[in-house]
């Protein structure tokens, strides 16, 4: 049984473009081209990239199709991006979104 098979091997992925790097809270993550930010994070074993506004609890992708807004992340300095929909690009800076992500505005 092919226990060690990866999804990429299953579909015979052979990207022309080389794997690239993004960072998550400063830590480099290498990923394949074609992934969403959420998929890139999952591929590195990261499941949470937001803390909730009230309880400060960790959250990440849940519905995977842009409906639930649980996967909101700060991408290249912009908060409230749906990580499951936004494609990862080389050099992207992903940071954990704390609460509503607008702490600097201090309402």
């Amino acid at each position: 049984m092919a226990r060690d098979r990866t999804p990429a091997e299953l579909v015979g992925a052979a990207p022309e473009q080389a794997p690239f790097e993004i960072t998550f809270d400063g830590r480099p993550i290498t990923t394949l081209p074609g992934r969403s930010v959420a998929a890139a994070l999952w591929s590195a074993g990261v499941l949470a990239w937001r803390t909730t506004r009230r309880g400060g609890r960790p959250r990440g992708a849940f519905c995977g199709i842009g409906h639930c807004y649980d996967c909101l992340a700060t991408i290249n300095g912009r908060p409230n991006r749906r990580a499951c929909l936004v494609p990862a690009r080389p050099g992207d800076t992903i940071t954990t979104q704390e609460g509503h992500g607008h702490a600097e505005i201090a309402v």
């Binding site: 990866t6 992934r35 849940f62 519905c63 995977g64 199709i65």
Partner: peptide, 23 residues
């Protein structure tokens, strides 16, 4: 059910089909 690692079944399927990743 709000713990990271709990994902929608359809969500896991979608992330796998499009992103080739597992939770």
């Amino acid at each position: 059910w709000t713990l990271p690692g709990v994902v929608g079944a359809a969500g896991a399927q979608a992330m796998l089909k499009a992103g080739l990743v597992l939770p």
